[in-house]
Design a protein around this nucleic acid. Structure first.
Lengths: 246, 246
DNA sequence: CAGGATTTGTGCGTATGTATA
DNA sequence: ATATACATACGCACAAATCCT
């Protein structure tokens, strides 16, 4: 009764964690929050996302929570069993290898497409992003490194003149990130920077075939890392991969 | 058994037009209906899907309609502008060419993967699906032909041992079908059967490189058709493409 | 550019279906 | 088999934004 007196607008303005000035919908806001929690590993794979709990903890109605959850389901981060619930997907070694293999095909296609259109801007921006990656690594910031690595490797797709390819890449890297989140705790080896350096050099070079070989080599390193890390207990992040996972 | 009687009674009370025996959710049922209407062209590209209208016409609550709509949005069949509405996507020539180019990359990857694993079953099933396609063409059934063509070209992806690839293909062919729906009215040329025959023969042959070339050739025909049909007014389906669109 | 009509976005109560302990 | 927790479904009310006149 008295509670209902309080206007919805007022309640909305009070909600913690939400910028009221944003034109974004609640659905998008909640989806972003959930995506971060899933990708950062705060919500572990296999965990069920319970609408009523999330509704209370985030202070958002079940409707919005539900819509956000389905957005992540359609993105491949969650899986739904009708009338049973939605859970964070748990990727095994095979699934990760599949993702890397598919990414290889996409990336070879991507570079083949953009190769004749490269110009100074391409080289400058790609180099910029690589330098940002190096800076993040040297700062020892794990989260920033992950973001910078993503930003670096997303550039070819953004530069490619194919909207469908960009959309598939979006979906793909989300899942790859999820797999990486499952193997948290491993430290990037010193070869990590060098590997991405070789990748950049090949991308700026004049030999497309060499670039395609470099893509295969780069992703092979990622697959090897996955094999090492998935086989062992994720908690025992003792062994250090070469760190070219993304 | 009293419980089962009550359940049956409840199911008997359910809305007509829905198969009560299926455990499928309303979301899935509505999504399927809408998908059919969009892909068949009953709902033309650019049309806004109004939740309240669909709610009344289908006899389903607005919540379920909303969820189904968002499923199609995430599938790339609809596009949403916050607070403005969701509309059937309208693909232009460039978008279609992008889709075909991406499909080419996926299909080359697909065949490269499955090539060493082909066996008698592969050849038998692929041949079966091709014969079903030929039968549909000879029967003059447009809808059945489209379905058979899809079934035929989906087989390599189903045979490939890569779940991620299959999922991307699902999303891709939905959108390609949408593009085809936009160019309805054109009749498949006599070369259509022959083109798919060549495709099948290459897939059953021993030369992977020849198969990859065949993929490029096959999709190039599709792109040519799109260029012809998109440039002209879709209503004037006078000119007949070679008909290898899918 | 004002303002009303239309539609989407959000919240909430409630009833029912389903899975699971 | 029962009970419980949860997902799903429906209906309404209202807020927020867009669209149109």
């Amino acid at each position: 009764m008295t509670a209902s007196r309080k206007t919805r607008a007022a309640r909305a303005r009070e909600l913690p964690g939400f910028k009221t000035s944003l034109p974004k919908t609640r659905r998008a806001q909640v989806a972003e929050i959930l995506r971060k929690h899933v990708l950062s590993g705060k919500i572990e794979p296999g965990t069920q996302l319970i609408e009523s709990r999330l509704s209370r903890s985030l202070g958002v109605s079940r409707s919005s929570i539900r819509e956000a959850i389905w957005e992540l389901v359609d993105q491949g981060l969650l899986v739904n069993r009708p009338y049973a619930g939605t859970f964070v997907v748990s990727l095994d070694e095979k699934a990760m290898c599949d993702l890397f293999a598919l990414r290889g095909a996409l990336e070879r296609f991507c570079f083949t497409e953009l190769w004749p259109r490269r110009n100074e801007t391409f080289g400058a921006e790609f180099t910029n992003r690589h330098e940002a990656l190096v800076a993040a690594v040297e700062a020892g910031d794990e989260d920033k490194t992950l973001a910078a690595e993503l930003h670096f490797h997303s550039f070819p797709y953004q530069y490619a003149d194919n909207q469908a390819l960009r959309e598939v890449w979006e979906q793909l890297y989300n899942r790859i990130q999820l797999g990486i989140a499952m193997t948290r705790g491993f430290t990037r080896g010193s070869e990590f920077v060098e590997n991405n350096r070789r990748y950049l050099d090949a991308a700026l070079g004049d030999d497309l075939e060499a670039m395609l070989r470099e893509i295969d080599r780069h992703l092979q390193i990622g697959v090897d890392d996955v094999r090492d890390l998935m086989g062992a207990d994720p908690r025992t992040g003792a062994q250090t991969g070469a760190g070219a996972a993304l």
